[in-house]
Design a protein around this nucleic acid. Structure first.
Ligand SMILES: NC(=O)c1ccc[n+]([C@@H]2O[C@H](COP(=O)([O-])OP(=O)(O)OC[C@H]3O[C@@H](n4cnc5c(N)ncnc54)[C@H](O)[C@@H]3O)[C@@H](O)[C@H]2O)c1
Ligand SMILES: NC(=O)c1ccc[n+]([C@@H]2O[C@H](COP(=O)([O-])OP(=O)(O)OC[C@H]3O[C@@H](n4cnc5c(N)ncnc54)[C@H](O)[C@@H]3O)[C@@H](O)[C@H]2O)c1
Lengths: 216, 216
DNA sequence: GAACTGATGTTATTTCGTTCACAATAACGA
DNA sequence: TCGTTATTGTGAACGAAATAACATCAGTTC
């Protein structure tokens, strides 16, 4: 049940760092460098690479170009990755017009909403009625969706996405969607992150958990 | 170096579930119920509670009210938790007007920006010039900030926040801010989450990592 | 009120991700 | 050419976090 999030996340981070190094004119990189950049041990870098058969040169480290090629293939970055956004409100709109995705090879190809005043099929990134979701997804072969509908619509919208056979959902509603066979869900819960920050700040340094107090 | 994020995150999740159960009229709850809700084992629920001396009744489970009281105290939810937002663009504005924070006891008390046309000190949630950041933070005793400035301003803005002795930052820029003594950073990287989703979807079921291929 | 039941609280065990340690080996210099 | 050196690649060791196991005890029943 416990999935290996972390290594995939690191793969993307390696990729990101490698692009920066390449832009700076570097050709080779060592596991130490990458370890420093991600604040992990060099050993873990090498182990990750080993896991995916990303090989380097026994003395001269890794060739950045070569690594990037392989990582891009591994992460599916050799083609543009298309996504849709369901719920084009404040968050949804912000994401639709976010230019940062392009850099990452991600492309928002359409939005969907239930509010007629938001729908605009002629826009450069069209927004369609959510009723057309299923047909669109099937026709275009979309696999990943961002969900940014109000909390009370989250569960229903998730059902729609599943019916459209969406394979992965990035959910912004603070509603824990139970994971389902055939559809991976990742939740972005900003409130939770903030609470967590408050907690970490409150107890930074001091010992948070009483070590299971033993009565005298 | 490995910090115990996870347990604090679960604490908040317990709290969230408990509120829902309370709203449904429940009075008691068992570790099984909470385990189901968070998709973790009941043993872990009990262990977490034990760690924080959250005790129940040997047979009748836990009293929801009682648990909530203790959790709220533990998470600092007995008072409103004030935050500021630096960078009031698309994401920043969305967060400023987000009503969901109130439910969580979080309050955005001010925004800061460098763009004069955005500044509006008279608004219900005032937006000040970022130059006033340090004075405001010190005067009001703010500890947590959300950072939603453009990528190229992220590092500089982070320095400002540190100079203002902010204790925790929720960073939306896809720029890895190196953690610093005295200031906890948590990064929200939506592009990374999407990449991760694509990865998980690509390899769901199939074995992603070649098990370190042994030559025949 | 004694035996039973069902859930907690805590100790033991397992699992899993990370780090350590080092053998293998390609580049470099003399 | 041959030794030296720097770095990879990976099996073993380690540690933390999750699960399992179980002893303990509050209710409940007869
Ligand atoms: N705004 C924030 O800063 C913020 C922060 C954290 C979490 N969230 C969460 O993100 C989600 C969206 O927030 P928002 O502020 O963008 O809300 P919003 O109200 O601005 O936008 C919601 C959009 O969804 C559309 N919608 C409603 N029902 C729908 C349905 N059944 N199918 C398709 N579209 C539907 C609405 O027409 C609207 O355009 C919410 O769950 C919210 O809790 C928002
Ligand atoms: N918009 C999105 O959907 C989205 C998604 C993921 C990540 N992000 C990241 O979030 C950050 C903000 O994105 P956005 O779309 O809201 O950008 P934006 O350009 O809409 O807003 C940025 C705001 O920051 C202000 N600003 C610029 N320099 C500043 C400084 N030095 N001090 C204070 N304020 C300053 C600008 O005036 C502007 O109001 C970026 O780093 C972006 O990469 C955005």
């Amino acid at each position: 049940m416990a999935m290996k999030h972390d290594i995939a996340q690191r793969l993307s981070q390696y990729r990101s760092v490698l692009y920066k190094l390449k832009a700076l004119g570097f050709v080779r990189v060592f596991s130490d460098n990458l370890g420093d950049a991600l604040e992990i041990s060099p050993a873990l870098v090498r182990k990750d690479f080993s896991t995916f058969s990303l090989t380097g040169n026994k003395r001269g480290g890794y060739l950045i170009m070569d690594l990037l090629d392989k990582l891009n293939r591994l992460l599916g970055k050799d083609k543009v990755q298309r996504i849709i956004i369901v719920g084009c409100g404040k968050i949804g709109q912000a994401l639709m017009t976010y230019s940062g995705f392009t850099r990452e090879g991600l492309q928002v190809v359409a939005g969907f909403d239930s509010n007629a005043s938001v729908i605009s099929p002629q826009a450069s990134i069209p927004i369609y009625d959510v009723k057309e979701l299923k047909a669109y997804v099937k026709r275009e072969g979309i696999r990943i969706a961002i969900m940014a509908v109000p909390d009370n619509a989250a569960s229903h919208t998730f059902d729609l996405l599943r019916a459209a056979e969406i394979k992965g959902v990035l959910n912004f509603a603070p509603v824990p969607l139970k994971g389902v066979e055939g559809c991976v869900v990742r939740n972005i819960n900003i409130g939770l992150e903030l609470e967590n920050l408050f907690y970490l700040v409150r107890f930074s340094g001091k010992l948070p958990p009483q070590p299971a107090g033993r009565a005298a």
